[in-house]
């Protein structure tokens, strides 16, 4: 039983005259982890950022085609972008915590979204931090400046912060690219746990990581979706020659 959560039709993305994506069509399933792999500059991040309309912050962005979440086109004129980003959370490549206390970082989104009850916020923080496997490390020093944490902790805190908006979909842009193996393992474990509740799309450079954590894998090359299949199938028996070449390290 697979439920289509995100459906992308013929999506092309341009930044000024540069085409980043070329007629991508893909169906992403709910409560699964979908990995997006491909060489640098193949449009992975651009694709990810169209799903919460983050690309619009870049001057010169244009797109063709449509992106549907639960059968609603998120690029319709009547879509509230701000609320869309509450539904589609995002974790960025490098940690971008605010230079405030750990607590303020975590309470930022709930406060902005109008939760006033201190108890609810505290519970939410504990819940998301436990999910993000960081609660034990920070629970005694919530008032410490978040930037004093180690890089791995910061990234997990970013994940926890992204979860405080209680999204449906979580986009992760190379969440472990700057981390050591231990932190990476923690984040991978975490992604595995999170899919029970969320639909997760992970962009990664690391093919072993994609193979370990994802249910489905999409291979992008030069702005095009080359192959999209179950991870086990794509990694063991790719149907496309380019995918096979990339996986075996012949290019990229």
């Amino acid at each position: 039983m697979r439920k289509v959560k995100i459906k992308v039709n013929e999506l092309s993305v341009f930044f000024n005259f540069l085409q980043a994506l070329n007629r991508v069509s893909i169906e992403i399933y709910g409560n699964k982890v979908t990995a997006i792999i491909g060489p640098s500059g193949c449009g992975k991040t651009s694709f990810l950022r169209t799903i919460n309309r983050m690309n619009e912050l870049i001057i010169g962005f244009r797109k063709k085609g449509e992106v549907l979440i639960d059968n609603i086109n998120i690029y319709n004129n009547n879509i509230d972008v701000v609320n869309l980003r509450r539904l589609v959370g995002m974790v960025f490549q490098s940690s971008n915590l605010f230079p405030k206390s750990i607590y303020e970082n975590l309470a930022f989104a709930p406060k902005i979204h109008g939760i006033k009850d201190q108890k609810i916020i505290d519970e939410l923080i504990e819940e998301t931090c436990t999910k993000a496997a960081i609660w034990e490390e920070i629970k005694d020093r919530l008032e410490v400046n978040a930037l004093t944490l180690s890089a791995g902790q910061q990234q997990r805190l970013c994940i926890a912060r992204a979860l405080t908006i209680q999204p449906d979909i979580l986009l992760m842009d190379e969440p472990a690219s700057m981390l050591d193996p231990i932190s990476t393992a923690k984040i991978e474990e975490l992604i595995f746990d999170l899919k029970k509740k969320y639909t997760i799309i992970v962009v990664t450079h690391n093919m072993q990581q994609a193979a370990r954590i994802s249910d489905f894998t999409a291979f992008f090359y030069l702005g095009q979706l080359v192959e999209y299949d179950k991870t086990t199938k794509l990694f063991t028996n790719p149907s496309n020659k380019q995918t096979e070449d990339y996986l075996t390290g012949r290019f990229g």
Binding site: V82, N83, R85, F92, L97, F98, A109
Partner: peptide
């Protein structure tokens, strides 16, 4: 820029981002 992106990514509006993230910094 990443500070603004972080805030917008958490579903803050532009004014909320300016008021809560950009101005304090």
């Amino acid at each position: 820029r990443n500070q603004r992106i972080a805030s917008l990514g958490l579903g803050a509006s532009k004014w909320q981002t300016i008021k809560n993230v950009v101005l304090p910094q």
